[in-house]
């Protein structure tokens, strides 16, 4: 058989192209009934929502046919200390071509967020990574063990309070900053 790249006539279906952000902001505002704020980042529409309303919002994003966000791109934790930590979810819809960021701030000392593994199987490893790197607790996640770090180590390296040389401190080569414990 030949591998000389036959092309699909017309290329991508039109829905798979990027759509204007203003349309999306209007569509998201229509969800109503849940309290959230809509703003814009340099690249995406951003929805800011409290953790207790996240599942209701994701239900709407996932199931409403005019939004149909079927693909969870990424989950990033951000340490916003002293204000607590935030999670940034990035969604994309293959059906409508929209792209959306959802910001979930958590209170200091209570980093609990519902797990999205029920809606998006892709959330599994992203949530495990955010849990070990920041100390988030994803309620409902089936298996929140360490992923990139050692299994029996319980540090959260991406917190701003965590010093850069922690490996040397762990090995006893260097002493840590005053007050730092692992």
């Amino acid at each position: 058989m030949s591998n000389k790249a036959p092309a699909r006539s017309g290329g991508l279906p039109p829905a798979a192209r990027q759509r204007p952000r203003a349309d999306l902001a209007a569509l998201v505002r229509k969800i109503g009934s849940i309290p959230f704020e809509v703003s814009e980042t340099r690249t995406d529409v951003d929805v800011r929502i409290a953790p207790e309303h996240l599942l209701a919002l994701v239900d709407a994003l996932h199931n409403r046919h005019e939004l149909a966000f079927d693909y969870l791109r990424n989950i990033s934790g951000v340490d916003q200390s002293p204000e607590g930590m935030e999670l940034k979810y990035h969604f994309y819809s293959f059906k409508t071509g929209y792209s959306l960021q959802v910001t979930v701030p958590t209170a200091t000392g209570h980093p609990h967020v519902p797990s999205l593994t029920g809606h998006y199987p892709a959330a599994d490893w992203h949530e495990r990574e955010a849990a070990e790197m920041f100390g988030f607790v994803f309620d409902g996640h089936p298996n929140l063990r360490n992923l990139l770090l050692e299994e029996d180590i319980h540090i959260h390296p991406l917190l701003k309070a965590h010093p850069l040389q922690a490996a040397e401190i762990l090995q006893g080569i260097e002493s840590g900053p005053p007050g730092f414990t692992i």
């Binding site: 036959p6 699909r8 290329g11 991508l12 192209r17 990027q18 293959f94």
Partner: peptide, 22 residues
Amino acid sequence: PWDLRKAEPYSVYDRMKFDIPW
């Protein structure tokens, strides 16, 4: 046939003619 170079073109990819193998 979903490729970010076509779906959300960046840099100069919008000026390039290429196909997504299918």
